[in-house]
């Protein structure tokens, strides 16, 4: 698998797109999706919620476990991916594309987000 170069990554295995008009998209990496197994339920933050970098903002459930979802940035949620709520398997089949989780108007970005190469080294994938 390869981690898209244009994204940045958190050590909690979320990815963040480059902001367009101040809004970035957040998802989990393919490495994380594979580690989870089949995702069967996604609880995402709601539009208008304030999310904080490094803090939990939802959860993803797979057959074997439930995992907290952390926000990689601080800001206000502008959209949650209803397609993923309806069909959580999108997180497995297209983690970097149709399986994105939410969009956020970025107020503050941590300085320690990783590049694709750094994340690949960090995750070993």
């Amino acid at each position: 698998m390869s981690n898209p170069q244009q994204l940045r990554y958190s050590k909690e295995h979320e990815w963040l797109s480059t902001a367009e008009d101040g809004v970035s998209t957040v998802g989990i990496t393919e490495y994380a999706a594979n580690a989870l197994g089949d995702v069967v339920y996604a609880q995402l933050p709601e539009v208008g919620d304030t999310v904080t970098a490094g803090e939990t903002c939802g959860e993803l459930e797979s057959t074997k476990s439930v995992s907290d979802l952390y926000s990689p940035v601080t800001g206000e949620v502008t959209e949650a991916n209803q397609d993923v709520v309806d069909d959580p398997s999108l997180v497995n089949s297209a983690p970097f594309e149709g399986g994105w989780l939410f969009k956020v108007r970025v107020a503050e970005e941590p300085k320690d987000l990783l590049s694709a190469d750094e994340y690949t080294e960090f995750s070993g994938n």
Binding site: A32, S65, S67, D68
Partner: peptide, 8 residues
């Protein structure tokens, strides 16, 4: 992402 619970 981090696991908060697992089947024991």
């Amino acid at each position: 992402m981090s696991n908060t619970s697992h089947t024991p």
